[in-house]
Design a protein around this nucleic acid. Structure first.
Ligand SMILES: [Mn+2]
Ligand SMILES: [Mn+2]
Ligand SMILES: [Zn+2]
Ligand SMILES: [Zn+2]
Lengths: 143, 143
DNA sequence: AATGCAAATGAGAATGATTATCGTTCGCGG
DNA sequence: CCGCGAACGATAATCATTCTCATTTGCATT
């Protein structure tokens, strides 16, 4: 576990509480980049912290609204969060092992803008995920 | 209500039952192209048919597996289905009035293939939705 | 047209993710 | 150190979807 940073919370208009610091630390210094509420809850629990699952859900939503985290809805029914580092990107997810790669493609981005304009829409956001099989040697799909 | 078509079900390997015929008819001759299970359930109920919600869910999933329908996961937490007419397309959804437009962009499609290849993935499917505000005159966002 | 039976249905219970409630605890200004 | 509203934790509630199981139905066969 590393240093906790109350500044980030204060500057986001959130008061610095223990659960919030733990969650933020997990995203900043943990090993998983994309985590669900349950993931966060289990990891905190494993590290000996007693946080309520409801608090995890509350904090994740607050962090999303404060712009600290970004929420994604991959297949599987549960929301996944990651640190908001300012730069937008999309995801390609392995359906076998869950491995996630990130990508950004300016051609895709600009085509989307053009399409929305042609159809008379003002874009607020978009969601793009590619699902497939990865080629990591430990990935179970390579039986 | 129109003619029911048991042939489509038989050719899909599904026996022709009343609930299945009603659901298929809704998608073929109804006014809404994209419908959730609850939408289908309500519409059937309003037309005087007594189908169980569980049956609607079962039938929608069966139709999806049989290739008669395609399932989409737009924001909002509920699955949306539409008739599978063979041609893939993506969607742009109005966050104010729910209006949905469909589009297909070969540039986006080919970029996705290239990206997946570069990252060592074999694509199974992808999900792309653009969310924004439409410009329909009756759309509430134009206050 | 009557019979038989596996498949399908419908009502309601169960599930999984997420949110709401509420009494207790905590962070922080005074 | 105090006080109080914000935040917490446990748990009940909600929502979409799936499961269970007794009853009904499609359909092939008498
Ligand atoms: Mn990411
Ligand atoms: Mn469509
Ligand atoms: Zn993999
Ligand atoms: Zn609209």
């Amino acid at each position: 576990m590393n240093e906790l940073e109350p500044e980030h919370l204060k500057s986001a208009g959130l008061k610095s509480t223990l659960p919030r610091l733990k969650v933020l630390d997990l995203f900043k210094n943990g090993q998983e980049r994309h985590m669900s509420a349950e993931d966060v809850y289990q990891l905190l629990r494993e590290s000996g912290d007693n946080v309520g699952l409801a608090t995890v859900y509350r904090v994740l939503t607050q962090f999303e609204q404060a712009g600290l985290l970004v929420r994604h809805n991959f297949e599987g029914g549960k929301s996944v969060f990651e640190l908001n580092e300012g730069t937008h990107h999309d995801h390609i997810v392995c359906m076998q092992c869950g491995h996630v790669e990130e990508f950004y493609d300016s051609a895709i981005e600009s085509r989307q803008k053009k399409i929305a304009a042609e159809l008379g829409f003002t874009i607020h956001e978009h969601s793009l995920q590619i699902y497939g099989d990865c080629t990591k040697t430990k990935c179970p799909h390579r039986r």
